[in-house]
Amino acid sequence: MATVSVKRSVTALATSAAALLALATPALASDVSAQAINLRTPFDCGQVWNANTRTNHNPQLSVDFQRSDANNKNVRSSAAGKVVTRRDLGNTSYGRYLVIDHGGGWQTLYAHLNSFNVSLGQSVSTGTIIGKVGSTGGSTGPHLHYEQKLNGAVQRVVLNGKAVVYYGNTSITSSTGC
């Protein structure tokens, strides 16, 4: 009888530990939520981009998309939503940037744009061309600075249902609009 009681206690302890571990890993919950709205790669179908992540990036979980001929490439909306920010900070910070609200607390930010193709308040579909890659603001070369936010907090980027690798470089082929 004592053996059965010990086994039940161990099982209960393991179940409690698993529940606590699940509560302590909110990034997993946000990854699932990001997959639910299916945020897409913000570029034309078939284009290959380097997704660069690094510990000294600001904010740390943002991604810089780079390629040799990046300047003036189309930037597309990662999902349907509404343009809630369209700003030009000149030669500082993000330079020209957009924020799209996708609902459910999710927003995406697109920075260092060369130009805008959408207006403040405009509704967009997944894959709508929203701007062109540039090197505005504090940028040192043409690239797209990209963020996914949940309730205002920057999250680890998930595109096409797959998490971007942190920290380093990941080659990503866009399937948006294919």
Rank of each mutant, 00 (worst) to 15 (best):
A2L: 13
V10R: 01
T11E: 14
T11Y: 10
A12P: 00
S16C: 11
A17D: 10
A18R: 09
L23D: 13
L23A: 10
A24P: 02
T25S: 13
T25Q: 15
A27M: 11
A29M: 04
D31I: 13
S33T: 11
A34T: 08
A36S: 15
I37E: 03
N38T: 11
N38A: 15
N38Y: 15
L39C: 02
R40H: 15
P42S: 09
G46D: 05
A51M: 06
T53L: 04
R54T: 02
N56S: 15
P59D: 03
V63T: 07
R67E: 07
D69K: 02
D69S: 08
A70H: 01
N72T: 11
R76T: 10
R76M: 14
R76V: 06
S78Q: 00
K82A: 10
D88T: 03
G90H: 08
T92G: 11
Y94K: 09
R96H: 03
R96T: 03
R96Q: 12
Y97P: 06
V99D: 07
D101E: 12
D101I: 05
H102C: 07
G103K: 07
G105F: 10
L109R: 14
Y110T: 08
A111E: 05
L113A: 02
S115A: 15
N117L: 12
L120R: 08
Q122R: 02
S125V: 08
G127Y: 05
T128A: 11
K132I: 08
V133S: 03
V133W: 09
T136Q: 03
T136N: 04
H145R: 05
Y146A: 01
L150M: 11
N151M: 11
N151F: 15
A153T: 15
V154T: 15
R156Q: 14
R156M: 09
R156N: 14
V158D: 08
L159G: 01
N160P: 00
K162G: 01
A163R: 14
Y167I: 04
S171T: 12
T176P: 07
